[in-house]
Amino acid sequence: MRQNPDIEISLVGEEATIDLGAKLALNLRAGDCISLIGDLGAGKTTLSRGLIQAILGADTEVPSPTYTIVQTYETDPAPIWHFDLYRIESPHELIELGFEDAEDDIMVIEWPENAGSLLPSQRLIVELIFTDNGRSARLTGTTPEWKQRLNDIFDRS
Rank of each mutant, 00 (worst) to 15 (best):
E89V: 00
I69T: 12
N4V: 05
D155I: 12
S48R: 04
K147I: 11
D32P: 05
A16F: 02
E103C: 04
R49I: 08
H92M: 10
R138D: 01
L11H: 05
I153L: 10
D155H: 11
M1N: 07
L47D: 06
G50M: 10
G38E: 09
N4A: 15
G98T: 04
G134K: 01
D152T: 15
D101T: 04
Y73H: 09
L118E: 08
K147F: 01
E14K: 14
L26S: 14
L150D: 12
M1Y: 03
D6A: 08
I95T: 13
E110L: 10
E145K: 11
D39H: 10
I34V: 15
R149G: 00
E61C: 00
A102M: 05
L124D: 09
S121R: 14
N4Y: 04
G38A: 10
Y86Q: 09
T45H: 06
A102E: 06
I106V: 13
L28F: 04
F130R: 14
L56I: 02
L94E: 11
G116Q: 07
E145P: 00
N27R: 09
F130Y: 15
K44I: 11
V12M: 02
Y86I: 10
T45R: 06
P79S: 11
Q71T: 04
A102S: 15
H82T: 07
P77V: 07
R49S: 08
I37K: 09
T66P: 03
I80K: 09
L28T: 05
L119V: 03
N27L: 01
R29M: 12
G134N: 01
N151H: 12
G13T: 08
A54N: 14
T68H: 02
D59C: 00
E103T: 13
I7R: 08
I55V: 15
P120W: 02
Y67K: 02
E74P: 00
L150C: 10
N27M: 02
L36I: 02
L118W: 06
L28A: 01
Q3R: 13
A102C: 09
D101L: 08
M1T: 12
I7W: 05
Q122N: 15
G38V: 12
D84F: 07
T68R: 02
D104E: 14
G98F: 02
G13H: 07
